[in-house]
């Protein structure tokens, strides 16, 4: 492990055009948020890939553990009544 104090890691999110949400584009190292923003512009938007950038220090992201996948997401799979196709309606009902 390196003993030097590295610039922290930042995650970069880019809105590719008005109307769409920001999407994870990648990460980079920068001394602070302003620098991260400037570098994100150079690294991830050299070809009109975006109209807006968010940067966030990677340390601040809390991620779910892949081991918890079942307990987190499995309960949703047997709740078919959450989907419109669960409800049988007579054919006469249009546009619903």
């Amino acid at each position: 492990m390196s003993k030097k104090k590295n610039w922290p890691l930042w995650e970069v999110f880019i809105r590719s055009k008005a109307g769409l949400s920001h999407r994870h584009a990648g990460s980079l190292h920068a001394a602070d948020a302003e620098m991260a923003l400037e570098m994100a512009r150079d690294v991830y938007t050299r070809r009109n890939e975006g109209v807006s950038i968010w940067v966030m220090e990677s340390n601040n992201i809390m991620a779910s553990d892949p081991e918890d996948k079942e307990s987190l997401f499995e309960p949703a799979s047997d709740k078919i009544y959450r989907h419109p196709t669960f409800y049988d309606l007579p054919d006469e009902v249009k546009h619903m």
């Binding site: 390196s2 030097k4 590295n6 990648g26 990460s27 980079l28 190292h29 150079d42 690294v43």
Partner: peptide, 18 residues
């Protein structure tokens, strides 16, 4: 930029870029 994307990918495996 390519170098940077790739260093970032190695970092996801728990390796320090330096």
């Amino acid at each position: 930029g390519h170098g940077l994307y790739l260093y970032s990918a190695t970092e996801t495996l728990g390796v320090e870029r330096d």
